[in-house]
């Protein structure tokens, strides 16, 4: 016997959580794209998609975020911080790759400077992952030592029932237990079986790739030029990525007052590493693509002992020229064998 939540109780759940002061967020299919968005009742969720087009990252690290307001006067500069949002949220129906992405980025945002904007949102948000029962050609979590039912970064794991009536409930963290205490009487004991998780075939040999990437001789390999020849240098892959976290600080306003903002930035752009002198240490697109791969699978794990990729596959799924991490690591795997 396990505890289950029936899908026809969703309306009640949403109501309970909202009454408890939480904003309820879930996968929503919009007219043009799907994303994690606020839902007002059970009908607002769309659990049918493989995963939303946009990752959960944007709920924690928005594409543009005001940090402080400044006014420059004759003898002083006044500044006023924008406080991090205090909103309590429950994200119901996150995918395991998205939740893992958040856990991966915790290490970055909490490294030398603890990013208040990120951690306030992290601490005030409950992540309820629903294990995947289907996957597409681009899913690759299993190649990253993750799985369709990974609990990394999630507070509660739900497994869809085979009979499609609801989910098995597995509380992972205290935060998750607290959120589910609010709906405890809506859960029930049941012997209903969970549906098998999606079969995600292993796309590449990660260890072999990492060994190749760590070999300094390969930094200047002609492989990089070959593999990235068709890269057009947009930021679609980095901006949809649940773990890419680079940002730029910009002051917007006139001479005397304005707002300092934190905006997404991307290593795909030539401007990303452009020096004031005009010199660019990553002057070609292949150097920029190499950086993205090296950062995710060599530098980041070197520093934080975890790969900066959770295998969602959005980079490849969405690429205008059909590139992506999968193809690159598959080709590196071939070089190694």
């Amino acid at each position: 016997m396990t505890r289950i939540l029936l899908s026809d109780k969703l309306d009640n759940c949403v109501e309970r959580w909202r009454s408890a002061g939480m904003t309820v967020i879930g996968p929503v299919q919009g007219e043009s794209i799907s994303r994690y968005a606020v839902v007002e009742n059970g009908a607002g969720f769309d659990f049918g998609m493989i995963l939303p087009d946009r990752s959960v990252k944007e709920l924690f690290f928005p594409q543009t975020e005001p940090m402080l307001r400044y006014t420059i006067k004759k003898s002083e500069i006044d500044t006023a911080d924008f406080p991090p949002p205090q909103e309590k949220r429950i994200i119901f129906g996150a995918r395991a790759c998205d939740a893992s992405g958040l856990a991966i980025d915790d290490s970055l945002f909490g490294w030398d400077y603890k990013d208040d904007f990120w951690f306030h949102r992290r601490n005030e948000s409950v992540i309820v992952t629903i294990a995947c029962t289907k996957a597409d050609d681009f899913c690759m979590c299993t190649s990253l030592d993750l799985a369709p039912d990974s609990t990394k970064g999630c507070d509660v794991l739900l497994r869809p029932l085979e009979n499609n009536r609801g989910w098995q409930v597995e509380e992972i963290t205290d935060r998750g237990r607290e959120a589910f205490a609010v709906i405890a009487d809506l859960l029930q004991e049941s012997s209903d079986q969970a549906a098998p998780t999606a079969v995600v075939t292993e796309k590449f040999n990660l260890d072999a790739c990492v060994t190749w990437l760590q070999n300094p001789e390969n930094f200047d390999s002609k492989f990089w030029k070959e593999i990235s020849m068709r890269c057009i240098g947009c930021a679609s892959c980095t901006y949809l990525c649940p773990t890419c976290h680079c940002f730029d600080i910009q002051d917007e306003g006139d001479t005397y007052s304005g707002i300092r903002r934190k905006n997404w930035d991307s290593c795909s752009f030539a401007l990303f590493t452009m020096h004031t002198s005009g010199h660019n240490p990553r002057s070609t697109q292949s150097a920029r693509w190499r950086q993205r791969i090296m950062h995710k699978f060599n530098y980041f794990p070197g520093k934080f002992s975890v790969n900066s990729c959770s295998g969602c596959g959005r980079c490849s799924r969405q690429c205008p020229v059909d590139m992506g991490i999968t193809e690159t690591l598959q080709e590196i795997s071939k070089l190694q064998s």
Partner: peptide, 27 residues
């Protein structure tokens, strides 16, 4: 409404054969 979804990834610019400027005005 349409532009509210824009994330300024500049995929439109990068995919466009006419956007060949070495340094785009927005850069």
């Amino acid at each position: 409404e349409e532009f509210s979804r824009c994330i300024k990834c500049y995929a439109c610019r990068q995919a466009c054969p006419m956007c060949y400027c070495r340094r785009c005005i927005v850069d």
